[in-house]
Design a protein around this nucleic acid. Structure first.
Lengths: 198, 198, 198, 198
DNA sequence: GATGAATGAGTCTTCATTCAT
DNA sequence: AATGAATGAAGACTCATTCAT
């Protein structure tokens, strides 16, 4: 009995989050009304509040789900037994981001901009993001250290700063793609290679 | 009469934009109410509507003013007779962004995130940003070509892609600073240097 | 089957009324939601509606049960073969009210205030109360007549008005106890005695 | 300029309170909706919120205004140079309550029941009432002491308990009037006289 | 010309009750 | 017979904007 209920609950929540993403994509987080999410989800107002305590909960759940989903998608890239070089890693990461973000009805990259904005004024969101991105940057730092061990990068370079640079490139890829629309993974990789990032 | 009025008008508008920035910084664009801007500006509701047609106009004017102000601030860096290398240029640009963004009562970097988010759903804003950033990227491309002429970068590299990479780094600097809070111009420059970006 | 069902039904209804009293005590009648009563009773929403047709029925049943219960409790006081004087009767009645009203989790005196308020806008409740209190006042009037026969009170006094006064004292005992919290049966009896009510 | 505004504000607030009383009379405090008060006041929803921060503020203001108004009305009775006896005082006080409570469109006695009920779950209201009624009871106690000085009441009687009894009679007058509808000041006075309260 | 009072369309959320399983 | 999921209508309150003075 609880099994059915738990599965049902998870399904409904996923259904609602999908509706929320479609709305957030078009309207942004704040300008999206509960009525819009409700209509997009196909549920009634009261059914919706059975699965999420309020708008804020939906926002946090939507952001959390996308951060978690993306992290799961990027993880295997770091686990690849054949370690990529700098430009190749950036290309694979941005490629995975792009692939993960493209959904029918919305793009999570655009929603990411909305989420970053919202996180500036929403404490729960800010903390959530900080933890996720900090963990991801630690992952990047480990990889830089490995590159240094392999001799690809000068051993004396500050690994944390290289990770900062790479994370900036990834963030910037999302922003540039959303605003100018022409930042491809391949282009960034070529640019990085030209600068010497082998 | 029109002259005094024009100066007076510009002053009032600047006063309103400053109030708007303070509000946008704390609440984001959508969640800021006209009442808040009115209270922060010290004007009356009707006075406000004398200087801006509505909330949308204030938003566009606020973003436009900050984009223009930043461009003016970054321009001299490109005009420097002693041309900087890649890492040095990034350090000077991010440093200038940081200096420009720091204001009493708000930081324009945080507001930039709000503006990017808002631009995803506001056609006027989207167009405005696209033009500004495209122009800025052309400026970066010119600089890359010059580096190629100077032999700092391989002549065969696609200049546009290098510019894309550099613009990503700048965007990412803003995002990383706003969310993780520890992306300094010097750190990014060190990271870039470590990758070979001389 | 019907017998068991009837006993079961009565038990369930009592369980629900107890839950309702606990809720009414904390929140008042109108501000109590069915969901709260349901949660407090430990039943399911649909089970609840099997035993009571709706919120209004619960309200009427709860008030009716407490009026009936109180009447049963007060009845023996009137039947006492050793007839008390005025002050003693008031002390015994208020004492019985106090004892009857004190329950684990709620006090019926507080709920009485909610019930009187609700009766001002609920026709069924108003009628119910009117009948109960009118009957009780008739009982008081009889007692006054007996006192007059015994010579405790002037024979020419209007018995109904004395009953009105005594009922006021009882109502006021409940109100003063609920609001100021320090109206004890003994205090009222002393006060009455001081005024000459032997 | 502030004068007009202040007068205007006070007028609007009085207008709103009158509307609130009419609604509370018919529906009780909790069951009255803001929409009803708004409709009864003739203002718009947003205009209403200019003068009261919310429903709770209206409730507190309405109760406070009636308590204060009643106190002002009862005060002169205590100041009368020809001091009344017990029954006469009760008759004059209940008479004044009745006269004060009768308004076109509503009766404040009925609203008092609603207010007492609401005070059981509203901390602000509870405190407000406690202070008002405690002060009033102190006034009654003073009067009892004077009666004792005059020899109308036994000097050894506990004045505070007599005041408790009298306050109960007044509270009970309101309850009995609202529920049974036939508790007149004269009837209570006669009842009290019959008991010896000269 | 300048103000603050006013507004109607919305915003999030909750409620008593019912229905499919 | 019993449940928990579902609902439509309403609840309190807010917003960008305008208008009478």
């Amino acid at each position: 009995m609880p099994k059915i209920s738990a599965a049902h609950r998870a399904m409904r929540q996923a259904q609602i989050l999908d509706a929320a993403w479609r709305c957030f994509y078009r309207e942004g987080v704040q300008a999206t009304t509960m009525e819009q999410i409700i209509a997009a989800s196909g549920l009634s107002a009261s059914a919706m509040y059975r699965y999420f305590a309020g708008k804020d909960d939906i926002i946090v759940a939507a952001v959390s789900a996308s951060l978690t989903g993306l992290a799961q998608r990027l993880e295997p890239i770091f686990d690849d037994p054949v370690p990529a070089g700098v430009a190749a890693l950036v290309q694979r990461l941005t490629g995975a981001i792009e692939a993960f973000a493209a959904r029918p009805g919305y793009k999570l990259t655009t929603i990411a901009l909305h989420g970053w904005s919202e996180a500036q004024r929403n404490e729960r969101l800010r903390r959530l993001m900080r933890e996720h991105y900090a963990a991801f940057r630690r992952r990047l730092t480990q990889r830089v250290r490995r590159w240094q061990a392999e001799g690809r990068i000068a051993a004396g370079a500050p690994a944390g700063d290289v990770a900062r640079l790479l994370l900036s490139v990834l963030f910037g890829f999302v922003v540039q793609g959303a605003i100018l629309g022409d930042a491809s993974p391949a282009a960034l990789a070529r640019g990085l290679e030209a600068l010497g990032g082998r």
